[in-house]
Amino acid sequence: MTGWERFTDSFFNARVMAQYLPKIIDGFGLTVVLALCIIAAGLALGLLLALVRTFSIRPLNWLIIFVVDLFRALPPLVIIVLLYFGLPNAGVELSGFVASWLALTLVLMAFSEEIFWAGITSVAKGQWEAARSTGLGFVQTLGFVVLPQALRITIPPLTNRTIAITKGTALASVVAVPDILGAANAGVSFSFNPSPLTLGAIAYLVLFFPVVVLGRWIETRFAWKR
């Protein structure tokens, strides 16, 4: 066997690929579901915390800042392992899927809160004053004037963060979740051939490439009309 043949036999072995494709497809579905659950919950919680923070209730804001910094500082894998292997000691058993979802949701919540908050505070003070001077209330001003502007500013960094964190779904394979990477890894151990990993990489590309393109599209769509 030449080196090239050895390479294709290892990474592009058609027989092995065909055999494990169904498992990878199942893993693909699982990764999509996990990612969507993380994005929905993480962004919603992040926005909620940022909105609560605008009310400037001191002790509450300190708590928010603490929680946010905590989950930005901890490596996501550490949180997953803590939830999965640590919580049972406290009598709470989480499945690998739920532990991964919760951990990455908390991380996305923390990072997106910071991004939403930065977006809200970057809106000029004059916008608040103009709106309030016409008789709009605090919440109305926030909702109709400040938030729409803040969200536009946040879209590029938010898209990047969201992609980075949802890619962390691969970590779920550590706690026995048969996501794309989990399924690919299992395939490698059974077949003694790394081709399933190639399939896994392709699956990740298929999943995230459109997301990256979508992010770019949203970014241009939301630019101010000139």
Partner: peptide
């Protein structure tokens, strides 16, 4: 505040709304 109109040095129009939208909001 509805009875007191205010105009600022820096205009402070809402950039995400048209002229009509700016006037209509309140």
């Amino acid at each position: 505040r509805q009875r007191i109109g205010m105009v600022f040095q820096s205009f402070n129009l809402y950039p995400h709304m048209t002229a009509l939208g700016n006037v209509m909001l309140a």
